[in-house]
Amino acid sequence: MADRVLVLHWWHDSGAVEHTHEVLRGRVREADGRNAEPTVGLIGSQSVRTTDTVPPSARGFDAGKKVKSRKRFIVTDTLGLLLAVHVVAANVQDRDGARRPLLWTRLDHPGVRKIWADQGFTGRLVDWSAQILGRELESSARTLTNAASRSSPSGGPESACSRGSPPTGVSPGTTRPARLARIP
């Protein structure tokens, strides 16, 4: 059993999982007649109920849903393919929790020039995205709904959120794979 755990750690730590995901995402996009690298993204968040086994420091109270939970932020391309994930306590506001996945998207996918978001991603976040990341964050409920419906039956980040949780064993704030050695 210990050998299996070591192999799983090697796959993750070596960058093999991240590399495989990137290659497969590119192939799916090309099979759909698109460029391998996306130019537009969608960001969404979703609160997910937690159990008592989740440490109190890793969960928060979502006032809108009135539950103790975690919140996951997901950035996808217009096909609904994953670009970035970030998990935080649910009491974190959308405009604050979105910064890391937006930054990761900027670093890992420099071709993404515009990101569509719902109304929770407004104000300072739009300005920060333009000034710091040099990216346009277009925030409107209608924009996100239209973008998801015309681009893919998978429906963008909300559908990605509902398909399941981030990888098992991932702690809040550490959902992005480490930038270690990449496989050529």
Rank of each mutant, 00 (worst) to 15 (best):
V48W: 06
G134E: 06
R163K: 06
S162L: 13
W10D: 15
V170F: 11
S171F: 12
T143F: 02
P55R: 12
P153E: 03
R124I: 05
T53V: 05
D52F: 00
D62Q: 03
L24P: 05
N146Y: 13
N146Q: 12
P38I: 03
P153K: 07
V87H: 00
F73G: 00
W128C: 05
K68R: 05
T39N: 06
D32Q: 05
I74H: 01
H86L: 09
P101K: 01
R100Y: 06
L79W: 04
D13N: 10
T50Y: 01
G80E: 04
D96C: 04
V170P: 00
W116F: 14
L8N: 05
L6E: 15
L8M: 14
S47N: 12
A130E: 13
L125N: 14
P38V: 09
K68I: 08
E22V: 01
R49K: 04
M1E: 04
L24G: 10
G123W: 04
V87F: 00
L102T: 04
G156Q: 09
R25K: 09
V87M: 05
A90C: 04
G97I: 02
R34P: 07
N146R: 12
S57C: 03
A31M: 12
L133S: 05
A16S: 04
T168L: 14
R72I: 08
L144Y: 00
R106H: 13
G97V: 08
A90I: 02
V54A: 02
G44W: 02
V85T: 09
V112I: 08
A63I: 00
V92F: 03
D127F: 10
P55K: 08
T122E: 14
D3E: 10
H9I: 12
R100P: 03
K66Q: 05
G164L: 12
R182L: 06
T76E: 06
L8A: 09
S159N: 13
P167F: 09
P172W: 00
S45M: 03
V54L: 04
T145S: 14
